[in-house]
Design a binder for these strands. Structure first.
Lengths: 249, 249
DNA sequence: CTTCATTTGTTCGTATGTATC
DNA sequence: CGATACATACGAACAAATGAA
């Protein structure tokens, strides 16, 4: 029990954290890209010299980070490396403490607003002159829904995605989309379907695109502020209500 | 075999993706906070009715997201829900394609700059009037290192952390810190230790804090731009070099 | 449509290292 | 130092999903 034992004791310290690292290194060495298949669990056991359980935990770790994507019955492929782990962490943080969730949610919304404002120049530059065929349709759908007092989550998400799609900085668009996901995942507990707010939000989307198309930076910034105004107003009033309710307990 | 069997077959479909969800729900139901211990693996096996391996994989998933923290030989506690998973994903994405890493890194640096600029009002408001006892010392240390041609990663990180610490929006500070981690993790392959750039960076830090203390918004923005200028200049020249080298191959 | 091989998903039993008392 | 509780790792076996023959 000399060789294997020594090997095992050496590995035992690092093995847990290094099996995932070895798989990452394997992806880098072979130059694999998102969608490319990686070796099966059995093959990884042989190549890395560890048990299947260890390989499975390493793969689970990487799958959580969207570095690989596991497909039952088929195999495992290199993942998209999206910001999904960020979303999951912050959503859980947002719903963790019922007395504090509004503060956490407001931080997310604040950051969304700051990011949208910070990207003003890039967005205006990308859309001034180029007509997007999809965005006007989305804006019309949102305004129609607002008139009927209906929400328009899908169109909202699509609007922001397409607005930021042409940016050079892909990461910025993904981050804004991630914050959108967090905010709409945490939001459902508040019903913010005031018709007037819906109309204002729909109009703000329309104004944002119109300003971007016409190259008007200042109008874009104003439209972004209007876009978040109903939401922030509600978050502030709700958090006051929560505070007074908490102090009553 | 009615109750348990039906329960087991129901679970079997969802079990894989829901064991982690059940643990999260357990944390929420019991109102646990970061640092509080969660049940041992054995207890979780009984409460959730799944095997030890499944519990372990679920815990590994949550540990990767920093929703729980595993302490060998002691137990598992609720984690800090930091942005560590975001860092790990983006670091790997940054080093994934050797020809493209500079583009990915530049996106991170661009976003850092946009965020710092977007937080101008909050930072100035938080520091105008209040003296921070640590920041001047960090600034002095950075300037001393710059004169000696030495890098000052530790002081740099501390500076940005403390600068954003007093903000109401904790998430913003954590996001900036996460981007700092990504950028310095991907960076080492470029050696950017030009003495002139070091001095400019050190001076920019000094200017940022001085502007924030004196409440000068415009000076703060200018200092932030100066702060990133050497890095962005290097990234642009390096990416040009990479492109011409790639076209040569 | 069925059969079959491949691959991942789940479980159990066992052994070992490690922290705490 | 010993005892206990816990996490870590391994291997074998069977279940479920997928895709191809």
């Amino acid at each position: 029990m000399n060789g294997p034992a020594a090997l095992a004791s050496n590995k035992s310290r690092m093995l847990r954290s290094t099996t995932a690292e070895q798989i990452k290194r394997l992806i880098l060495l072979r130059g694999l890209h998102p969608g490319d298949p990686i070796p099966t669990e059995t093959e990884l056991c042989e190549e890395l010299g560890v048990s299947r359980s260890s390989v499975r935990e390493a793969i689970r770790t990487l799958a959580t980070l969207d570095i690989v994507e596991v497909r039952h019955g088929t195999g495992t492929v290199v993942g998209q490396m999206s910001l999904a782990p960020l979303v999951e962490t912050l959503v859980f943080r947002g719903v963790l403490s019922p007395g504090d969730d509004l503060a956490a949610l407001r931080e997310v919304v604040d950051l969304r607003r700051s990011l949208d404002l910070a990207l003003t120049d890039d967005v205006v530059k990308a859309h001034s002159g180029h007509e997007d065929e999809e965005i006007p349709r989305l804006v019309a759908a949102m305004q129609a829904s607002a008139e009927n007092g209906k929400a328009f989550l899908y169109e909202d998400r699509q609007f922001h995605t397409r607005l930021l799609a042409p940016l050079t900085n892909q990461l910025a668009g993904q981050l804004v989309a991630a914050f959108w996901d967090i905010h709409t995942a945490v939001l459902p507990r508040l019903d913010l379907a005031l018709p007037a707010d819906l109309r204002q939000t729909a109009k703000a989307h329309s104004d944002m695109y119109a300003a971007a198309r016409s190259g008007n930076h200042e109008a874009y910034r104003k439209a972004v502020i209007d876009h978040y105004e109903p939401l922030l107003r509600m978050l502030n009033s709700r958090s006051d209500a929560t505070r007074s309710q908490a102090s009553r307990d």
